[in-house]
């Protein structure tokens, strides 16, 4: 039992979370979705992130869930991300259930709310599948090519570069607090005191992190200036050159086409099935 507890704690450590985050961002795996042009993926995603809100037919929603699950699994998503999503869903369903029972409702009330949960699940899975298959560099180029400002698309890829450094520094700052602080002597019920202590440190460590980052930025801004970043912002040739590597292939259209056919098929089936249900 103690060993299991220890191994669970290990899994939940900051170190572990750090690794999983890094894996998600820098894993560089080739997946099914990563083969396609990032702009095509954005088009694909913008449909599946919005459409579920307007679909009320449960058959269609369930039908959409199948390819989403397959795509998510094919994207080799970090278990951490899935666990967080799972925890969110389970807690949502249970509080709905609890609420409905408390206020004299019955399981009846849960049914329509479950539809909402299903929609959220669909959208989450689509996001996870697309964004974990598309590294931020591709995303940044895609955003630039669809007309986002250069500063914005650069911000995405710069965040990507800075993420590990910020995580590392944050971790060190937390250690700074711990190496000079004092943990509560009594751990309290369900370690509540320790949790509060750690949570406090977790928040306070952000302040030095922000200040240190602000200080570092001076060199970064000068370096960007020297290395032609502002020059490129106003130069159409530089933008063209930067985006010249992106090409839409036949395969991209095949993928979009298949998705479209599947959705149409699903709607007709849903239409037919809901009629026969009634």
């Amino acid at each position: 039992m103690e060993a299991i507890k220890q191994s669970m704690l290990d899994k939940l450590s900051v170190e572990q979370i750090k690794i999983e985050l890094m894996r998600t961002a820098f894993g560089r795996q080739s997946t099914f979705l990563s083969r396609f042009d990032p702009r095509m993926l954005l088009v694909w995603y913008s449909f599946f992130a919005v459409a579920p809100w307007f679909i009320h037919n449960k058959v269609v929603l369930l039908g959409l869930l199948v390819p989403m699950l397959v795509l998510t699994l094919s994207s080799k998503v970090s278990p951490l991300v899935l666990i967080i999503m799972g925890v969110g869903l389970v807690s949502e369903i249970s509080y709905i259930l609890l609420g409905s029972l408390l206020f004299g409702g019955s399981l009846e009330a849960v049914w329509p709310l479950l539809t909402l949960t299903l929609k959220i699940l669909l959208i989450s899975l689509a996001s996870i599948a697309v964004f974990s298959s598309m590294d931020p560099e591709k995303l940044s180029d895609a955003l630039l090519s669809i007309g986002m400002p250069g500063q914005f698309s650069f911000g995405v890829s710069y965040g990507y570069r800075m993420l590990p450094i910020l995580i590392e520094e944050y971790h060190n700052l937390i250690h700074s607090f711990r190496l000079r602080g004092r943990a509560p002597a009594k751990k309290g019920f369900l370690r509540v005191n320790s949790l509060i202590y750690m949570a406090k440190i977790g928040v306070r460590a952000f302040y030095p992190l922000l200040l240190n980052t602000a200080k570092r930025t001076r060199t970064t801004v000068e370096a960007l200036e020297v290395r032609g970043f502002t020059y490129a912002l106003v130069s159409p040739e530089a933008k063209k050159l930067k985006l010249s590597h992106m090409q839409v292939h036949a395969l991209d259209f095949v993928f979009l086409g298949c998705s479209l056919i599947y959705v149409i098929a699903l709607f007709s089936l849903g239409h037919y099935l809901s009629f026969s249900f009634n």
Binding site: F26, S157, Y158, R161, R216, T219, T220, E222, A223, R227
Partner: peptide, 14 residues
């Protein structure tokens, strides 16, 4: 060309 003293902050790409 200029290489800054805190060169880590001049690296902006992944």
């Amino acid at each position: 060309a200029y290489v800054f003293q805190d060169f880590e902050n001049q690296l902006v790409r992944p």
